[in-house]
Write a protein that binds this DNA or RNA. Structure first.
Lengths: 109, 109
DNA sequence: GGACTGTCTCGACGTCTGTCGAATCAGACA
DNA sequence: TGTCTGATTCGACAGACGTCGAGACAGTCC
């Protein structure tokens, strides 16, 4: 997602092609578990966090967390890296900034 | 959605309750048609736009557009008002600002 | 009132999604 | 090599979603 986009949504109509690219990212954010996962990843002290720290934070099985992480990965919101036994996730801040920019509205006039 | 929330997602872990409230808004944005609809509404010259201007802009039936508009309404992203024969939609900028704030990431250090 | 137009609701359909348990893969370490 | 642990993939299932056609509702105008 090296989006061409990113004029604020309220500035002009977002073209169909841009919408097709951007919607999946919002869709990935559209689940409470994934929103929390992303938040835990993005707010991690060292910039990254181990799956082994994410899984026990939810009342869900490992496979389910893994599934949500894959969704975030495929939406381009996070990156994963295996180091030895553990897998670390890190947020892709570029995309987050783009999404934020898209939602930005001019202050009330 | 009079969200208590809205510390940036990367600042601290968003609590489960906040996630439950915010996720539906992102979910509503997670469809290309709704993203374009919202964009058309938010970028309308007069601040509002008639359904009769929205429907023909897509290759979808009236009921389908109506369904998407309802989804946006129920997510708190837009307001609808009937005036005579026509129904006008208008964006709720407060929520958009909150969502943008949530996604805001500190500039690279 | 009756006919017409614009919008929404209802019911149905195929598809996608969130969840799980079982099985599999990847490394570490005897 | 064999075994153990952490993470992912696979297969299945119930429920949600996007779409449509048909019908209902709200206003306007004759």
């Amino acid at each position: 997602m090296d989006v061409s986009c990113c004029l604020p949504l309220a500035e002009r109509r977002v073209p169909a092609e841009a919408a097709a690219v951007l919607a999946p990212a919002f869709k990935a954010l559209g689940d409470p578990v994934r929103l929390q996962l992303l938040s835990m990843i993005a707010s991690a002290e060292s910039g990254e966090i181990c799956v082994c720290d994410l899984t026990p934070a939810f009342d869900l099985t490992g496979p389910t967390i893994s599934h949500h992480l894959r969704t975030l990965r495929e939406a381009g919101l996070v990156d994963a890296e295996r180091r030895g036994t553990w897998v670390y996730y890190r947020a892709r801040t570029g995309i987050l900034r783009q999404l934020a920019a898209l939602l930005t509205v001019a202050p009330a006039t």
